[in-house]
């Protein structure tokens, strides 16, 4: 029974990963690509390792899978945040449909 639940979570994770990578291809500029890919791929990888945890139960491998889940949830937003800030500072423009940009005033004031 545990194995079936584990395979179910792994399947959900794989589908989320695939949708995130489709978003990486379809969206028009860097920031929207970051949005799509970060959210979907974080949940996808965590889903896969949650499935591994269910499959093995409370053994050494299952606890290591839990450690990976905590680590990915903590670090993936940090790295996406760093990439977004670096992209803005290196001068990547936002796409044409974008509406407002409050961040530009702050950057000009800091200079």
């Amino acid at each position: 029974m545990n194995e079936i639940i584990g395979l179910f979570f792994i399947t959900i994770g794989i589908i989320a990963d695939l949708i995130g990578c489709l978003g990486l291809v379809r969206f028009p500029d860097v920031y929207t690509r970051l949005q799509a890919s970060t959210k979907c791929v974080t949940l996808g990888t965590c889903g896969i390792f949650f499935g591994v945890f269910f499959y093995y139960g409370f053994t050494i491998i299952g606890l290591k899978a839990l450690l990976i889940i905590i680590f990915v949830f903590l670090t993936s937003p940090v790295s996406s945040h760093a990439l977004a800030k670096a992209a803005y500072k290196s001068g990547v423009k936002m796409c044409q449909q974008s509406v407002c940009d409050e961040y530009r005033n702050y950057k000009e004031r800091i200079k």
Partner: peptide, 17 residues
């Protein structure tokens, strides 16, 4: 270059999966 950096980030997470 920022697009390539984003794709590299995602590639790492998928290999972990």
């Amino acid at each position: 270059p920022a697009d390539r950096a984003v794709a590299t980030d995602i590639l790492g997470l998928i290999v972990v999966g």
